[in-house]
């Protein structure tokens, strides 16, 4: 599973990143690129559905969804935990 590519696909379906998700670098600030507070909630819910995980309360914050790298780290932790 290519987590980063999957994240880009999920981002592409978010209103703020339609058509430009593939051009984002791993460390571009998604909030600077137009993600707003409610958009980050929609992103969180879409990621949960895509990866079949549930973000715990401790990860429900802006930092977890600030960049593609941050999202990959959060998702990887949850996938590993579910697999263990």
């Amino acid at each position: 599973m290519d987590i980063t590519q999957d994240i880009r696909e999920v981002l592409g379906s978010n209103e703020a990143f339609a058509g430009k998700a593939d051009r984002l670098s791993e460390d571009d600030s998604l909030f600077d690129m137009g993600l707003d507070s409610f958009g980050s909630v929609q992103l969180m819910l879409a990621l949960e559905e895509r990866f079949d995980v549930e973000f715990p309360d401790s990860l429900l914050n802006r930092k977890s969804f600030a960049t593609i790298r941050a999202i990959r780290e959060a998702v990887s932790t949850l996938i590993c935990r579910d697999a263990a």
Binding site: S37, S40, V41, M44, L45, L60, N61, R62
Partner: peptide
Amino acid sequence: RAGRMLANNQRA
């Protein structure tokens, strides 16, 4: 649950 994230963001 979505609200918990909005609340955390608002505080932060």
